[in-house]
């Protein structure tokens, strides 16, 4: 490419953690600036240049009518659109509202609820516009982000592994929590990306990087049920940062049906 690709970063409903991981890439930041031209990144600079952009990084989910309109404008302005993180890719933790009454929540949380105007759902970017590439994680792994940016500049495919967290645990020599301790761990159905961090620190995987391919949630949940875990314990495990990722959503919804059956709710 004769000229450096123009990069823009846009924030929607999110905590800013994923875009901050770009600033956290301190050792690589100067080299990144040699490869891409950062044209619009409010977190880093008030010099916000107008589009069109070659690459747009999208953080956050869609929770307001304004944002639903704004993402369409961003899409029109961007050649290649990448969602970064669990919010943009799967709706984020705020997608828990999808199972609740959002007005009740607003009333109970905000002292002046009349100033809040929000949609009843939190939805991933891909439900609104075409997404060219998705980076998973809560937050994303900045090494993966750097690889995606360099891959774009070089015109090659990014190297983002899609295998389960288990493979990383085995590389590190971490002993399986499900097998050795009977602890529910989402590692076998979660995509790699964190390097199997939590299992190395004595906890099961929380599924931050979302469902792996394939995510055989029904087989794994059967196992957890055999270990004595009730749907009441398993539903929150799945309804977390990636609650609205289709595989986790389906699995948790099925568990709630089981829960009602367990409680003997008349049909």
């Amino acid at each position: 490419m004769s000229r450096k690709p123009r990069l823009a970063v846009f924030k929607f409903a999110s905590c800013d953690g994923c875009q901050l991981s770009l600033l956290d890439a301190e050792d690589e930041l100067l080299a990144i600036c040699d490869r891409v031209d950062i044209a619009h990144f409010a977190e880093a600079s008030s010099d916000l240049q107008p589009g069109p952009y070659d690459v747009a990084l999208i953080e956050g989910s869609i929770t307001t009518a304004e944002d639903a309109a704004r993402i369409r404008r961003v899409r029109l302005d961007s050649k290649f659109l990448i969602t970064i993180g669990a919010c943009a890719t799967a709706g984020g933790i705020q997608a828990l509202r999808n199972w609740a009454n959002v007005d009740d929540w607003v009333d109970s949380i905000y002292p002046s609820p009349e100033f809040i105007s929000t949609l009843s759902t939190s939805t991933p970017i891909a439900q609104h516009v075409h997404v060219d590439f998705a980076l998973h994680g809560c937050p994303i792994n900045y090494h993966q982000l750097v690889d995606v940016l360099v891959a774009l500049a070089e015109g090659r495919q990014p190297r983002i592994p899609s295998h389960s967290v288990c493979l990383d645990c085995k590389h590190r020599g971490t002993v399986c929590h499900v097998v050795a301790r009977g602890v529910p761990c989402l590692g076998p159905v979660t995509q790699s990306g964190c390097g199997a961090l939590c299992p190395a620190y004595d906890r099961g995987c929380y599924g931050c990087f979302g469902p792996s391919v394939p995510a055989n949630t029904s087989s794994l949940l059967n196992k957890f049920r055999m270990l004595g875990q009730s749907p009441d314990q398993l539903v929150p495990l799945l309804r977390n940062f990636n609650a609205a990722a289709p595989e986790f959503q389906r699995a948790a919804d099925q568990l709630t049906i089981l829960r009602s059956n367990d409680e003997g709710t008349p049909s």
Partner: peptide
């Protein structure tokens, strides 16, 4: 196949499984 998680654990713990991938990693410069 319906029960298998395809999680790779069996092949990782197997003392004879030998598959590997080779990746070339360039630095940013």
């Amino acid at each position: 196949g319906d029960r298998c998680l395809s999680c790779t654990n069996c092949t990782m713990v197997c003392p004879t499984c030998f598959c590997s991938s080779v990746t070339e990693i360039r630095d940013l410069n």
